[in-house]
Amino acid sequence: MLSSTADHLYWMSRSMERAENTARMLDVTYRMSLLKHALIEPHHEWRAMLSISGLHEDFEARYDLPSGQNVLHFMALDEKNPGSIYNSIFNARENARAVRGKITSEMWEALNATWLTMHQTRIEGIEEDGVSKFFEWVKERSHLIRGIAHGTMLRDNTFRFIRLGMFLERADNTARILDVKYHILLPSPKDFGGAADYYQWGSVLRSVSAFESYRKVYRDQIAPKRVAELLMLNTDMARSLITCVNEVHRLLREIDGSRANLLLSRCSDLHSRLHGATIENIFSYGLHEYLSEFLEEIYELGKLINTTYFWSKDE
């Protein structure tokens, strides 16, 4: 496969996955902000949203207060914000356009239609009561496009590069959500099991569609450590770190290892480290430290994928 083709496929799915995750985080934050809970400091949640994405500097340069309205606009519709949902969908569509001949026509048409609607939405703006509906729409489009890929594409390297982009982006996003939320919601012993945990950690779970799963797995009240365990180490969870890394590890071996020794060994290291970890030793090591290192590893894998398969500039 041409390197540029692989590159476009990978970024097509990464961008769409990013759009979905941004929508998930915004949606949960928005719902939380409606609660007007005594325990929540104004703007606190919205500020957290910006630090998850690492975009607060860009935001502060162009907006004043991290109010709900400002952050929503910045993260959903702002064409100057490279990480906005608008730009993520734009990037997904532009990458798809470059490889139209390589993806199924259903796939292209779904991505193209998504972009056309997104473009129209940006022009019309989102009404106050349409916020959640918009996020639902983004999630649904992402589900649809992923489903089309699954239901229509040959299981060849085209499919694998699409999956690779998706899981790498998802690993990154889940780790970020957990890291930032944990940082903000540092558990204090007196709150354990209290209402704050229920709402705050419940929102973390909801942002990755894991609320029901938590109940099923633990059959118990919501506890921060268990949330972390579920989102990091549970191999049955669709969006957990370990599931994403399992998939990336498998995909990289299937794609072709002949030029990928360095990439494969790095990925194998990460894979075995996660499989050897328990939530207890992660917490005693320090969750934030652990997640920072994990994010660093994901970043390095992305860089190695670039140089191994896409012939990035520095080669």
């Binding site: 041409l2 390197s3 540029s4 692989a6 590069f161």
Partner: peptide, 19 residues
């Protein structure tokens, strides 16, 4: 392919692929 997919080394044209 477009121009960026190709390169020339020792007067031979190659395309950049994942392999």
């Amino acid at each position: 392919v477009d121009g960026n997919d190709l390169f020339v080394k020792n007067d031979i044209v190659y395309m950049r692929t994942t392999k």
